[in-house]
Structures are given as structure tokens and as C-alpha cells.
């Protein structure tokens, strides 16, 4: 170990992989509906696509988790995105391709992709 800077680099590199274990209220939360209806409609590839994108973009403050049936099974796979201080946005009939846009436009840049939301579908 030559300097504090070197220590800080190791810290930053590892921090993203451990801060899931801290109580964080600050970050963005992505929740994928993973009940039987969700899984049948293809929620797994959607979830995996989120993980892939988050990993690719090094988004340390995003958590991806699952939930049970939200109730509108015909619109599955559904995804809810909670950004701190903002209204929840619900996306419906998600696919792996749509995930890329949601991550890029909504999670990174803060602009919900209106055309994929439940509001647009109804």
C-alpha cells in the first residue's frame, strides 16, 4: 500500500458490491412483478435485462427486486420504478428491449418513457 489514494480506489471498487447491505433510502428501486402470471408472461428475461443494464452502466445506487402479483395480470410483465422524491412509474408489457430504454431514459436521465407506462396502455 503506497498511499491513501490507493486505499480509496479499492474502497470505491468494492463499495458497489457491498452497499446493498446498508439501509439506503436514497437510491432508485426497480421492482419486477414475479408472480406466476409475471413469470409466465416473461418477467425473468426482463429482470435479467435490468441486472445486465445496471451492471453495464455501473449504477451503484439502484436496487432491483421482485414482488408478487400486482393484479393486472393481462398487462404483465410489469415493472415499477421508484425514484427518490418522485411518483412511482408503472411500466407494462415489458420486454428486454424496452428495459434498455427505461434504464437509459428514466433511471439515468430522469425522463419516464411515457409510451410504455400503464397510463398509455389503458
Amino acid at each position: 500500500m503506497k498511499s491513501l489514494k490507493e486505499l480509496e480506489e479499492i474502497k470505491q471498487k468494492t463499495l458497489d458490491s457491498v452497499n446493498l447491505r446498508k439501509d439506503r433510502s436514497g437510491g432508485t428501486r426497480v421492482v419486477v412483478g414475479m408472480a406466476t402470471c409475471g413469470i409466465a408472461a416473461g418477467a425473468r428475461p426482463v429482470l435479467l435485462a435490468f441486472l445486465e443494464e445496471v451492471k453495464k452502466r455501473n449504477l451503484g445506487d439502484v436496487t432491483v427486486s421482485q414482488t408478487g402479483c400486482i393484479g393486472v395480470c393481462r398487462l404483465e410483465p410489469m415493472v415499477e420504478v421508484y425514484r427518490p422524491g418522485e411518483e412511482k412509474v408503472t411500466y407494462v408489457k415489458m420486454t428486454a428491449d424496452k428495459v434498455k430504454r427505461v434504464v437509459a431514459e428514466h433511471i439515468v436521465n430522469g425522463r419516464p418513457v411515457t409510451e410504455f407506462t400503464i397510463g398509455a396502455a389503458e
Partner: peptide, 24 residues
């Protein structure tokens, strides 16, 4: 909280920072 067999995880929770501060 951490995996005790991984020094990186200790460092991620500010490990060895106190030593660095004292020495420098």
C-alpha cells in the same frame, strides 16, 4: 455485515483508513 475473509469488504467499510490517516 462483511465477509471476514475478504479484505476488500473491510476496506469498503472504511477499513485501514484510520491507519492511513495516522501514518500520513
Amino acid at each position: 455485515v462483511i465477509n471476514p475473509e475478504k479484505i476488500e469488504e473491510y476496506i469498503a467499510f472504511d477499513g485501514y483508513k484510520a491507519l492511513g490517516k495516522v501514518l500520513t
